[in-house]
Amino acid sequence: MSAVPVALTRTATADVSVPLPAYQSTGAAGMDVRANLAPENRDDGLLLAPGARLAVPTGFCIALPEGYEMQVRARSGLALKEGVIVANGPGTIDADYRGEVAILLLNTSARPFTISHGERVAQLVLAPVIRAAWDEVADLPPSRRGTGGFGSTGR
Rank of each mutant, 00 (worst) to 15 (best):
V84N: 05
A110I: 09
Q123E: 14
L64Q: 12
I115F: 04
L78Y: 06
V137E: 03
A79M: 14
Y68V: 10
E100R: 01
A55W: 04
A52F: 11
A102T: 15
R98T: 15
G83V: 09
L105D: 00
F60G: 02
L78K: 04
P65A: 13
P128F: 12
A63W: 04
V137T: 07
G77M: 06
L105F: 00
F113V: 11
V137Y: 03
R42K: 07
E40S: 13
R111F: 09
A132L: 07
K81C: 12
Q123D: 09
W134H: 15
M70T: 02
S116C: 08
R42F: 00
A52D: 15
L54T: 03
G118K: 05
D44F: 11
A127C: 03
T108I: 05
P50D: 13
A122K: 07
S143L: 11
E69V: 10
L104M: 15
V125L: 15
L78Q: 14
V56S: 09
A52Q: 12
T108A: 09
L126H: 11
P141V: 12
L48Q: 09
P50I: 05
P90Q: 07
P141E: 09
E69S: 06
L105M: 02
P141D: 08
V101T: 00
C61H: 14
P65G: 07
E119P: 01
L46A: 02
A55F: 07
P90G: 01
W134A: 10
Q71E: 10
I62F: 10
F113P: 00
E136V: 08
D43R: 11
A87I: 06
G91C: 02
L54M: 13
A87C: 13
T58F: 13
D43S: 03
G99H: 03
I115W: 05
K81Y: 03
A63R: 15
P90S: 05
T92H: 02
L46D: 01
S143G: 07
V125S: 02
E40Q: 07
F60P: 03
A55N: 11
V56T: 11
A102W: 06
V84A: 04
T114V: 15
V125D: 02
A63M: 09
I103N: 01
I62R: 13
L80M: 14
N107H: 00
D135F: 05
E69L: 08
S109F: 00
R53Q: 13
V101S: 00
P112L: 01
A133E: 15
G99F: 05
G99W: 10
L47R: 14
T58L: 04
V84M: 10
D135Y: 04
S116K: 15
L47K: 10
V137I: 12
E136F: 06
A95V: 05
E69M: 04
E136L: 12
G89T: 13
A110S: 12
E66V: 14
V121D: 09
E136P: 04
I115Q: 00
C61Y: 12
T58K: 07
R131G: 08
A127I: 10
I62H: 14
P141S: 14
A95Y: 09
S116D: 12
L78P: 01
W134T: 09
R53T: 13
L48D: 04
A49L: 03
L140Y: 13
F113K: 02
R120V: 03
Q71L: 04
A132N: 08
M70W: 12
L46F: 03
D44T: 14
E119Q: 15
G91R: 00
G118W: 12
